[in-house]
Design a protein around this nucleic acid. Structure first.
Length: 406
RNA sequence: GGUGGGGUACUCAAGUGGCCAACGAGAGCAGACUGUAAAUCUGCCGGUGCAAACCUUCGAAGGUUCGAAUCCUUCCCCCACCA
């Protein structure tokens, strides 16, 4: 089973402390270690929208996420590889993860057709049709070169019935197996077979088909599906664990419209079934209260567009809940967004000025709020981690949630 | 003083007899957003009312008409050019 097994010391997961289901750990990758629980900012197009990587690092991010599907369309995965891979391309030398495009199967449902072979996407750029198969996804993600790469999966809306949820879960398992086989082959070869990879833009000018540079060591994460149906989640996990000794496992298909109690119950179940010595990555969750609930249920890694998107749209996270900065009530408010927050927006500016930036449509406003929200969730998970280490997480989290939701 | 153009809701701006409480845009207000086709999207935006509906509005005042933001008269104000 090749390198999908964690035989290579370049990936490690060391649990340092636990309290109830919550864990504090260190996840090591070829590009460095991440202390968990951790939040990964989303940089779909190899950029955290509006922010620079140094800024993202400055608020505490240690691992960031990019999207294979979007980068495949533009600039093309072979182009990224020819430019030195995702880390060099985006100038991020810490751990990176690429999502496969599975989420786009869901979010861009009206532009694609799913078959057993894969997904046929209609490109947003030029309308061209792209055959996106599990094998192709592995080639793309290998070329991009993130440390952790995700399988192609299929997810369905949160509240879906048993039958469609089962179909998507089972298909995700079959796609996982195809991803695994192709992943093992690519990693065994030591380099991505550039010549086999066609991109929408042909052969990149800087590419050499004789490129001897070794592909970066990568880990493939499977994704648990099954909607909010416990038996399906259980089956999904069993299926995943029977085919490999994965460096980590993701829980997908949540926060897609299902009631929160259903999501939390599903997490409880997944946590109880997943290996304790591997990171659990809860995909697409990133509102502060959901992060705390996720940590409580044994999740280690998170990613979400919420902090950055909400920030760009004028909503700031605070310990007392969300705050819409553009509201007239902040016209004369000299207080920072959050007292004591170390981010640029909070240390340098007051709410009145930030409100003005939004009113005046200045790009600095969205930038500062996105940065603030990232700083907020980073600090939140740092506090959660400290509480776990201190054996005080349960009371800390209850108090925190009470204040946030008041 | 003369000639021409123009005064529409918070602003800009359509509308030249009924389908007009009045297109559209902006501002303002409220809301949405969870593995990013999102610096995006939605709602409200004269007053009262849940609604039906009623009331008050298109510079002012009169008038014509079944009916006027739209036609006529006078007046006020703004702009351009000519004196």
């Amino acid at each position: 089973m090749g390198r999908s097994r964690v035989s290579d010391a370049r990936f490690a997961f060391r649990v340092e402390a636990t309290e109830a289901a919550a864990r504090a750990a260190t996840f090591t990758t070829p590009h460095g270690a991440v202390e968990t629980p951790a939040f990964m900012p989303v940089g779909t197009h190899a950029a955290i929208r509006g922010l620079t990587m140094p800024e993202v690092a400055a608020v505490g991010a240690r691992m960031v996420l990019s999207n294979a599907y979007h980068l495949y369309l533009r600039p093309g995965d072979a182009m990224v590889r020819a430019l030195g891979g995702l880390h060099a391309f985006a100038r991020w030398d810490g751990p990176m993860l690429t999502d496969s495009g599975g989420f786009q199967v869901f979010s861009l449902a009206r532009y694609r057709t799913v078959t057993e072979d894969g997904v046929a996407f209609r490109s947003k750029l030029d309308g061209a049709l792209h055959a996106y198969t599990p094998e192709r996804v592995m080639q793309v993600e290998c070329n991009l070169g993130a440390d952790v790469i995700m399988q192609l999966d299929e997810l369905i809306a949160g509240g879906s019935e048993m039958a469609p949820a089962r179909a998507a879960m089972e298909r995700s398992l079959r796609w996982l197996e195809r991803c695994r086989v192709e992943f093992d082959r690519l990693q065994r070869d030591g380099r991505a077979p550039l010549g086999e990879v066609s991109t929408p833009h042909g052969t990149p000018p800087l590419a050499s088909t004789n490129d001897e540079r070794c592909a970066p060591m990568q880990a493939l994460f499977p994704i648990v599906q099954g909607g909010v149906h416990a038996e399906l989640r259980r089956e999904s996990i069993r299926g995943i664990l029977s085919t490999g000794d994965w460096a980590g496992v993701a829980v997908g298909g949540l926060s897609t419209g299902e009631p929160k109690p259903d999501m939390y119950a599903t997490l409880d179940l997944c946590a109880s079934e997943l290996p304790r010595d591997r990171p659990r990555y809860l995909m697409g969750v990133g509102f502060p209260d959901d992060l705390v609930e996720g940590v409580r249920r044994g999740m280690d890694l998170f990613d979400c567009v919420a902090p950055t998107r909400m920030g760009r749209h004028g909503t700031a996270f605070t310990p007392e809940g969300t705050l819409q900065i553009a509201k007239a009530t902040h016209r004369l408010d000299r207080a920072p967004l959050v007292e004591g927050c170390p981010c640029l927006g909070c240390t340098q500016y007051d709410r009145a000025y930030l409100r003005h930036l939004f009113a005046a449509d200045e790009p600095l406003g969205p930038r500062l709020l996105a940065l603030h929200n990232l700083a907020f969730v980073m600090g939140l998970l740092r506090d959660a981690r400290a509480a776990i280490h201190a054996g005080a997480f349960v009371s800390w989290s209850e108090e925190w949630l009470r204040r946030y939701r008041a």
